[in-house]
Design a protein around this nucleic acid. Structure first.
Lengths: 115, 115
DNA sequence: CATCGGGTTCAACGGTCGTTGAACCGTACA
DNA sequence: TGTACGGTTCAACGACCGTTGAACCCGATG
């Protein structure tokens, strides 16, 4: 059976909050992975990111508290999945546009910063 | 004539950066105002937000450095405008979905926090 | 000249963020 | 029983964020 953790009602989440949840390169990568894999084991989500366990746990918490993903436990394993339908209902089109732009070419970091 | 300030090339802006630029209630409000008014005087953008001058200037800087708006000076007045077309080209659909969700009902802050 | 208006800059503050490492927890398996 | 695995929690750290108030800048206007 699925035993849920603490997840906010999406009606309690503001636009600024969910945008903050997305606004990190590691978390964007995790979102992309979950989109591609569907519900999957947590360790798969950050496998190729080089995050420490505690750091990954932190980002999972931010994503969960932003309403972006749902975690559940089945047997001895934890799973994670995007709350895609709920997000679509609360913020129509937002997840889709974030997903479709995650792979946009990263800027050239060797160039000098502005200002 | 239009004299520009320091604005990053949008190719230098990452998805995470622009999302961070949007991820603040005051800045979302400013974005909405600029969308409704088009290019307009800066003071109009934060008129009904209760921001101090220096705080507004700070948020203008964040929005500018995130590539979200362009500032210009004509005569003695400063103007601000969304970089809508450039954003659309770099992150297709993103600005539109943010704009269309800014007015989503704010969550009920009287409810207890999760965790 | 002075002064006003619209913005910027600066230092300072309290709070939060991302990251780390170590300790811990629960389940599974030897 | 022990021990390994997958995660969480905690304290700590340096960095950054949002906000404030005061000082400053500069073009326009008296």
């Amino acid at each position: 059976m699925t035993r849920d953790q603490l997840h906010p009602d999406l009606d309690q989440i503001s636009m600024a909050q969910v945008l903050h949840g997305f606004a990190d390169p590691a978390r964007l990568h995790m979102v992309k992975t979950m989109y591609e894999l569907g519900e999957c084991q947590c360790s798969l989500v950050y496998a190729d990111l080089g995050l420490s366990k505690s750091n990954a746990s932190h980002h999972f918490r931010v994503l969960r508290e932003s309403g972006i993903l749902r975690r559940s436990q089945r047997g001895s394993q934890q799973y994670a999945a995007l709350r895609a339908e709920e997000l679509e209902q609360r913020f129509p089109g937002l997840l889709a546009s974030v997903l479709s732009n995650i792979d946009v070419a990263e800027p050239d970091r060797s160039a000098p910063r502005t200002q």
